[in-house]
Amino acid sequence: MLGEVLHVFRRRPRLRSFVDCTLGFAAGHSSAVIEMHRELEVYVGLDVDPVAHEKGRARIEGLLKGSEGLKAYTHLRNFKYIKSVLAGIDEDLLKEGVDGVLMDLGMSSMQVDRSERGFSVLGEGPLDMRMNPQASLKAEDILNSWPEDEVGRILREYGEESNWRSLQRKIVQARADGGLRSTSELVKLIRSSSTGFGGRQGWIKTATRVFQALRIAVNDELQTLEDALYACFDSLSSGGRLAVISFHSLEDRIVKKTFLDIIGNGDENGNFENFKGWNKDETDVGEELWSKQRVEGKHGIVLTKRPITPSEEEEKLNCRCRSAKLRVIQKV
């Protein structure tokens, strides 16, 4: 969704400062923003994965050779610490705020393809799943030592897995035989719990949901995301924009609800409907036809009633992007 992201930040007359909260291995979004906005004065890139941070930092340093006057900083930090990172760079930067912030919550293919990280359903590796290798909690700890009810809750709430009771029971039973120690052992257990319908795709979908649930729990992703959304919005300048790309319903629900809470609109379930402030006049949004309806609050404007999704052409080029949803909020 590179084109859509660039469009979000193109609307400002000048993009002086920009933060990429999820730098990534290729630093793709950051590179494109830097190349498009030659007026950029301060760039900050964050990533909690040391390998991704190192590779992304090298890419950014390569771009600096052709960007006079641009000060670039990369930090190995979780995006929930954006305010302390900005304050460490320059107190005035945090006080005045930054013009643009991007959060891309997707897993990098390089992370998934590294079997030693334990993210892949199809690879052989340890039950790790830590985004930050320095963190103490691993997926193996949850599977082999957490209370049975907690294991079930994770599968049910974070994986939205309908077969969670059977999986919970088998995971706990496996502890009597030494527990689960590898991704292949967990996948074997999941396959044995499948009903037999759906063939290979059936158990892969179940395994994907289970792996997602464990990854979310290991990295405390949902609470971290919510905290980070508030921190990122606080870090914006007047008129600054925060864009968030999510890849599953749990993330998108949190983004939608938190955006409404930030601006002071929305009901307890994070619904937009039946609230005053909807702007349905397309002429008010100029070229931004993807923002046909906006909801305005005291502190900001949600520019996307419905999330922006990838085009059919992009889905054909990259099947992994088909579940992506982009939401945008602007500070008043």
Rank of each mutant, 00 (worst) to 15 (best):
M1D: 09
F9R: 12
R14V: 15
D20W: 06
I34L: 14
V44E: 01
G45N: 11
D49M: 07
V51R: 06
F79N: 07
Y81P: 00
I82W: 02
V85S: 06
D92E: 15
L93N: 04
K95F: 07
V98P: 01
D99S: 13
L102G: 09
M103A: 14
D104K: 06
M107W: 02
R114I: 03
F119R: 08
S120Q: 07
V121M: 06
P133Q: 04
S136D: 15
N144E: 08
W146A: 15
W146N: 11
W146H: 11
D149G: 08
L155Y: 09
L155M: 11
E157T: 12
E160A: 04
E161N: 02
S162F: 00
R169N: 07
I171Y: 01
A174D: 00
A176Y: 00
G179Q: 01
K188E: 14
I190T: 03
S192E: 08
G196Q: 07
G198V: 01
G202Y: 02
A207D: 01
L214T: 12
R215T: 12
I216A: 04
I216F: 04
A217C: 05
V218E: 07
V218Q: 09
N219G: 05
E226M: 05
A231P: 10
A231F: 06
C232P: 02
D234E: 15
S235K: 08
A243C: 06
V244L: 11
D252L: 07
I262W: 12
G270L: 09
N271V: 15
F272H: 11
F275T: 15
K276N: 14
E288Q: 05
L289G: 04
K292D: 09
I301P: 08
K305C: 12
P307K: 13
I308L: 07
E313Y: 05
R320Y: 04
R320L: 07
C321K: 12
S323Y: 01
L326A: 09
